[in-house]
Design a protein around this nucleic acid. Structure first.
Lengths: 148, 148
DNA sequence: ATGGTTTCCTTAACTTATTAATCATTGCGA
DNA sequence: TCGCAATGATTAATAAGTTAAGGAAACCAT
């Protein structure tokens, strides 16, 4: 048999899946009032925070793979929540920007989203919350590989 | 504008997504040598650990939704990695069990999987690793809602 | 400038996630 | 026993994840 593996209840991948489910559940509930999905919300969030971005940066910041981003941005564009413009200097590149309609969706729900975040913070305790974010960052290859 | 939301770089959902990606990447690489997927691996892991289970319990332990489990178990069954038997007493219920072929896949890779786990443990430090699992458990609704 | 390479993006194909609807079996009350 | 609600499982529909392949624009060395 030789199962040197940890019990599934102490398995890091499974713990991450369950934690994500726990965190996303209320957020999904909030988004169910809107017409946008969790990933669309992430894209709009990043665009609100960073302003217009090229697709590569946008995919990176929103933690989405390129093919997913293509579909999501296309959908958002059809709904009038973002605009897609080709870079004049390099016509391979594409600049995605949020529209007023898109901004309104973020604004209309930012308070409730913030409340949800506060809820988790108080559940864990503020310092535990920060610790968790730090530990999670250590698992992100982008944070621990690139810079020594 | 009124964005009371945390910067996406300190956003819990995004941090969870990125951490999961970082953790799953080497595991996926390991599984690419086999014919099974990440979720199929989870199902086989749970069955190895708990023995034959009814679908409901299995879905819960593997953190999979029922419709996903239906497909995954069907696929695994076709491949001869698990068996599906209907409960004699209640023919609505279904019992899923791992086969010898399925067990062999787990056994053949349990050492490498354990090595991957050790790698993360040493990256975080053992006590940080345990702290992380504890904090993640606090986000799991199954752990904090049911029992006060 | 031309062929080859790289970069950016999109498609394609397959699997999974999520929600809702549907089917089958069971249990229960009139 | 006949309907009818409840339960377990599946199917359906749409969105997203993942890997690989394809297409267009830019770059680069000859």
């Amino acid at each position: 048999m030789a199962t040197k593996l940890p019990s599934t209840s102490r398995s890091l991948p499974i713990a991450l899946v369950r934690a994500r489910e726990g965190v996303m559940s209320p957020i999904r509930e909030m988004l169910s009032e809107t017409s946008i999905t969790e990933q669309q919300w992430r894209v709009l969030r990043v665009l609100t925070e960073c302003g217009p971005l090229d697709s590569k940066t946008l995919a990176d910041r929103a933690s989405l793979l390129f093919p997913s981003l293509t579909r999501i941005v296309t959908t958002l564009n059809k709904g009038g929540l973002v605009t897609q413009t080709r870079d004049a200097a390099d016509r391979r590149k594409q600049i995605v920007a949020i529209t007023e309609v898109g901004k309104k969706i973020i604004d209309d729900h930012s308070e409730e989203a913030a409340r949800i975040v506060v809820g988790f913070k108080s559940r864990l305790g503020p310092e535990n919350y920060e610790t968790l974010l730090d530990l999670l960052a250590m698992l992100d290859p982008a944070n621990s590989d690139g810079d020594t």
